[in-house]
C-alpha cells in the first residue's frame, strides 16, 4: 500500500526576471516502510519537492495523496492540522525551540495534538530513549551538540506518530560521526517500527544507507533505483 502518491507535480517560481521551473513533472509512489533518499545537484529542486510533499509549499500543478487524501485540496487550516497529525519534519538546521528543553520540544507536538500530560511524558521518555538521549531530557538545545539536537528533532518528528518523516538534508550540518549515528537511529526506527523516511542529501555515505534512491535533476526524476535489500511486504 502506498503511503504517498505523487502525480505530475510542478512548481514554477516567478521571480522578477525569469520563471524558475524548480520541479517539472514528478510522479512517484512511496509505500509504507520505505527508506528513500532524494539526491541531486544543488538547485535541482529537492527542497521544493519535499516541501510540496510535506504540505508546506503549494504546487503550481499536480497532486499529492497521503493515505488517499489529496492534501492540496484541504483548506489551509485543515492542512496545518494534517501536518500536525500525519507528517514528521526534520530540518537541516535542527530548528528546535531554544527556550524549551529537549523534553519540552518533543512534548510540545503531542500537546498540540491534545494528549494528556501523563501519556505525553511517557512517550517523550520512550522516544528520547530511542534516540539515545534519555538522560538529556531537561537540557536546552544550546547545551546539546548538533548531532544530539538533530536526534531530538527526530524524536520530535516521531512524536506525532506520523505516516512518514520528511528530512531535508538532515546530516548536512553534522560531522561524520554524528551523521553515522543519526543514520543508524533512523535506520533502526525504520526497520523496527516501520517508520517511512524520505530524506534528501548530497552526502554519498548517506546515500549508501538508503534502500531507494531517487535522483532529481532540473526538477525531473533522472533515476529511481531500489536496492536488493528492500524489505518484502
Amino acid at each position: 500500500m502506498n503511503v504517498i502518491e505523487i502525480k505530475n507535480l510542478h512548481k514554477t517560481y516567478n521571480t522578477s526576471q525569469v520563471a524558475v521551473k524548480a520541479v517539472n513533472g514528478i510522479d512517484l509512489s512511496i509505500s509504507k516502510g520505505e527508506f528513500t533518499a532524494v539526491v541531486g545537484p544543488s538547485g535541482s529542486g529537492k527542497t521544493t519537492f519535499l516541501n510540496m510533499v510535506g504540505g508546506l509549499d503549494r504546487p503550481t500543478s499536480g497532486e499529492v495523496f497521503v493515505d488517499g487524501v489529496n492534501i492540496w485540496e484541504l483548506s489551509s487550516r485543515k492542512l496545518i492540522d494534517f501536518r500536525l497529525r500525519n507528517i514528521g519534519f526534520v530540518f537541516q538546521s535542527y530548528n528546535l525551540i531554544p527556550v524549551f528543553t529537549a523534553k519540552e520540544n518533543v512534548e510540545f507536538i503531542m500537546q498540540m495534538q491534545g494528549w494528556d500530560a501523563k501519556k505525553r511524558f511517557e512517550r517523550t521518555k520512550k522516544l528520547m530513549d530511542e534516540v539515545g538521549l534519555g538522560d538529556r531530557l531537561s537540557s536546552r538545545p544550546g547545551k546539546l551538540s548538533g548531532g544530539q539536537q538533530q536526534r531530538v528533532a527526530v524524536a520530535r518528528a516521531l512524536a506525532s506518530k506520523p505516516k512518514f518523516i520528511l528530512a531535508d538534508e538532515p546530516t548536512a550540518n553534522l560531522d561524520s560521526h554524528s551523521t553515522e549515528n543519526l543514520l543508524d537511529i533512523m535506520e533502526r526506527l525504520n526497520m523496527e517500527e516501520e517508520i517511512t523516511f524520505i530524506f534528501s542529501t548530497h552526502d554519498p555515505r548517506v546515500m549508501k544507507k538508503a534502500r531507494r534512491i531517487v535522483t532529481i535533476e532540473d526538477g525531473k526524476i533522472l533515476s529511481d533505483e531500489r536496492k536488493e535489500a528492500e524489505v518484502a511486504h
Partner: peptide, 11 residues
C-alpha cells in the same frame, strides 16, 4: 522559528 512551528502543525 515561527515558520518551523507552523510547518510542524502550529495553527
Amino acid at each position: 522559528e515561527i515558520g518551523m512551528l507552523m510547518a510542524v502543525g502550529m495553527n
